[in-house]
């Protein structure tokens, strides 16, 4: 389904300003109009170099109930992320992604060191012993970003006016959707983004009782 994965249907409407702050509201929908959660929308100024200030404290991506939480985390370049294990069993968190490869061999509780994400890009996380565990860390070179909630809306505020590149990424979209938008001096704009999502490749947890029966 490469064609489906690569297709990003785009229904863009620049609406007149409704609020007072300079913000962009991005509404992410699938082709059926259903809201899409866990999409990361970011705005990168085209006429200025954005200044990113990583947070002082590390961001947490926890393992609980043998799942990562949250599934998608967006951070700026230079952010440190820690992976506390709240389960009774050990986990082996790793990434083989180009922008950040790391390996946290089997551990309990808090790992010794947080992991520094110093390159922009998408980092796919996995647990070496639990195939179904999956998470993403989207490392951005811009401070203007938001993650869509269950209503599909990602609201990006405090944006300097001018031309920006809007990028919308989702784990199940093959590549990020990119679009140029102009942010006005005053007011808010709403971007409605339709994403066609590919198959969810998250490995499902095998039920405890089920064995590898003859198939």
């Amino acid at each position: 389904m490469p064609s489906v994965l690569s297709t990003l249907m785009l229904l863009s409407v620049l609406l007149p300003a409704v609020g007072n702050a300079r913000e962009v509201r991005v509404e992410v929908r699938d082709p059926k109009g259903e809201p899409v959660a866990d999409a990361v929308a970011s705005l990168t100024p085209l006429d200025a170099t954005p200044v990113v200030q990583p947070p002082a404290e590390p961001v947490s991506v926890v393992q609980e109930g043998e799942e990562f939480r949250p599934h998608v985390t967006a951070v700026v370049v230079g952010t440190r992320v820690t992976f506390p294990n709240r389960d009774a069993v050990q986990h082996h968190v790793f990434s083989v992604s180009r922008s950040k490869k790391f390996d946290l061999p089997l551990y309990r509780g808090e790992p010794r060191e947080p992991v520094l994400f110093d390159q922009p890009g998408v980092v796919s996380l996995g647990c070496n012993i639990h195939d179904w565990m999956s998470a993403y860390i989207v490392v951005l070179a811009t401070p203007h970003f938001a993650r869509s909630g269950t209503d599909g809306a990602a609201v990006i505020g405090g944006i300097p006016p001018g031309r920006h590149r809007l990028e919308v990424w989702h784990p199940r979209a093959r590549s990020a959707l990119t679009r140029e938008v102009i942010v006005a001096e005053v007011g808010a704009a709403t971007q409605v983004i339709a994403l066609t999502l590919g198959v969810d490749r998250r490995v499902r947890r095998a039920p405890e009782s089920a064995g590898g029966g003859y198939k």
Binding site: G126, D131, Y136, P171, R201, R202, V203
Partner: peptide, 10 residues
């Protein structure tokens, strides 16, 4: 068969 890291086919 796919080689996956998490849910990403690498």
């Amino acid at each position: 068969v796919p080689v996956q890291a998490g849910s990403e086919v690498i």
